[in-house]
């Protein structure tokens, strides 16, 4: 069950999108999400859809894989849509038993669905096509100016890349602990809320202990390999823009300006 979570993972493939400079992809997702929330009209949604489909196509990510990533948030998504659908006031379209469905409600829901779905697809496309190290390199580069404001950019990005490395390991660990406790006849799904929360203890404590042990080991390993923070450190990969990167920037600019114009005209 836990293995189904694919968000934040890297999907190894050799595609144009994979080879893009991570900073480009980062900006792309940023501008793209911005545009989704700024311009809420049919034409801009169409444009956004085209852009997304093209990106998915070139990224060579199987659609099956992409969809599986949604599974965990699917329930949440349905829940919010339903809530929104039934509680929004406005022109009544039709009544279903005790619930009224309004025109505004339906429109709102469409907005939410499109935005959230596209946001998730776009950002998971980013992580699918960019290794965590490349991503953190990009973040470090982009936020470098904040160093002057005494923000520990390197440390933060290092933390992030370590978190990304250990997420799959800890997921597996959780799976193993859950199995071990179920083989000791633990019942996860009975009782009231309080009981269920209490039921988490036999899972959470071993998990915390394991995470701490790993953190301890990792700190030692990093120290023994001369890690001493960002200072005096060189980089294995220096980010350098290439032709295709500028091309994508231009494409992105055209998309944004075009959407903006349509938004202003409508």
């Amino acid at each position: 069950m836990l293995r189904d979570i694919t968000i934040g993972q890297y999907y190894p493939a050799d595609s144009i999108i994979h080879r893009l400079d991570p900073r480009v992809k980062l900006f792309f997702v940023f501008i793209y999400v911005l545009s989704l929330f700024m311009f809420g009209n049919l034409v801009s949604y169409c444009l956004a859809t085209i852009l997304l489909v093209v990106a998915i196509y070139y990224a060579k990510i199987p659609v099956k894989f992409l969809i599986r990533g949604f599974k965990p948030i699917f329930v949440l998504l349905i829940f919010t849509t339903f809530m929104k659908l039934f509680i929004t006031d406005g022109t009544v379209w039709f009544k279903l038993w005790k619930f009224t469905i309004t025109k505004e409600g339906v429109i709102d829901v469409i907005h939410i669905l499109v935005r959230i779905l596209y946001l998730i697809i776009a950002s998971s496309l980013l992580t699918y096509t960019t290794t965590p190290t490349r991503l953190t390199d990009a973040l470090e580069q982009v936020f470098k100016p904040l160093n002057k404001l005494k923000v520990p950019v390197h440390e933060l990005t290092m933390m992030m890349s370590i978190a990304l490395r250990f997420i799959p390991i800890l997921v597996e660990e959780t799976d193993k602990i859950m199995k071990a406790q179920s083989s000791r006849c633990m019942n996860f799904s009975s009782g009231n809320i309080l009981k269920r929360i209490k039921n988490l203890v036999p899972i959470l404590i071993p998990l915390f202990v394991a995470a701490l042990r790993r953190a301890d080991d990792l700190a030692l390993a990093m120290e023994s390999r001369c890690y001493q923070g960002g200072e005096g450190r060189t980089k294995m990969r220096i980010l350098k823009y290439k032709r295709q990167d500028f091309f994508v920037y231009i494409l992105l600019a055209i998309y944004f300006v075009f959407s903006l114009i349509i938004h202003l005209l409508l």
Binding site: E173, K176, I177, K179, A180, Q181, S182, S183, R184, C185, N187, V201, P202, I205, P206, V209, A210
Partner: peptide, 20 residues
Amino acid sequence: LYKLRSEVGMVFQYPEHQLF
């Protein structure tokens, strides 16, 4: 299944990791 698991006991690899 609970009865089965009590009768067929399973000790995982590194079982000490499940102590809590």
